Amino acid sequence: MKIEIKDITTETVSCSNCQACCCRLEVMIISETGVPKQYIEFDKWGGETMLRLSDGWCSALDRETMMCTIYENRPWICREFEMGSYECVTQRAEVS
């Protein structure tokens, strides 16, 4: 039996093929960026996180375009999660 191993190090991610996989991760709000209150919920410890809807996706994600509707006010963690980084590619591989 031959096992195929997917090489995620050669995958190029761009705006045109982004699957917004990071928008399924829990996002803590740890600095003030102006995230509108309707996109914020509180975890069991009282910390602010991005609200995720019943489908598991971030509430700020436009499901048709797969783009952030609050991009200019997105949380710091979202700003630091770099498209095409190792973390991005790894997350894509996990949901593929």
Rank of each mutant, 00 (worst) to 15 (best):
C18V: 14
C58G: 08
E41F: 03
G84R: 11
C78Q: 03
V35N: 00
L51R: 04
E94I: 10
C78H: 03
M67Y: 02
P36F: 01
L53H: 04
R92G: 07
T65A: 06
K44F: 11
M1C: 02
T90W: 03
R52Y: 02
K2H: 08
W57Y: 13
M1W: 10
S16A: 13
V89E: 06
S54E: 15
V13K: 11
F81T: 10
W76D: 07
T65R: 05
E82C: 11
G84I: 12
T10H: 00
E72W: 00
M1D: 09
C22M: 14
K37M: 04
S96V: 09
P36Q: 00
T65K: 11
T9E: 08
R79G: 04
T12F: 08
C15Q: 11
E41P: 01
W45C: 02
V95D: 03
I8S: 13
R79S: 03
T12Y: 04
E32N: 04
L61R: 03
G34P: 01
C18W: 09
V35K: 03
R52M: 14
M1G: 06
E11K: 14
I30Y: 04
S16K: 10
S14N: 09
S96A: 15
V95K: 12
T69A: 11
W76G: 10
G84Q: 07
C18T: 08
T90N: 11
L53S: 03
P36E: 02
S14Y: 01
C58T: 10
E48G: 04
D62M: 05
M28Y: 15
E82T: 08
Y39P: 00
E11R: 06
M1P: 10
A20T: 07
T10Y: 02
M67H: 12
I29E: 04
F81P: 13
I77M: 07
G56T: 13
C68T: 12
T49C: 12
S54M: 10
K44H: 08
E87N: 10
T49I: 14
T10L: 07
P36A: 00
N73E: 10
T12R: 09
P75L: 07
I3R: 08
I5E: 01
E80W: 09
S31E: 05
M28T: 06
V89A: 15
R92F: 06
T33Q: 06
R52I: 11
L51T: 05
Q19V: 14
E72P: 00
V27D: 01
G84D: 15
D43G: 08
C22V: 15
C68N: 03
C68I: 04
T69R: 14
C78Y: 02
W45M: 00
D55P: 04
C68K: 09
V89M: 15
V95T: 10
K6Y: 09
M66P: 01
N73H: 12
I5L: 05
T49P: 00
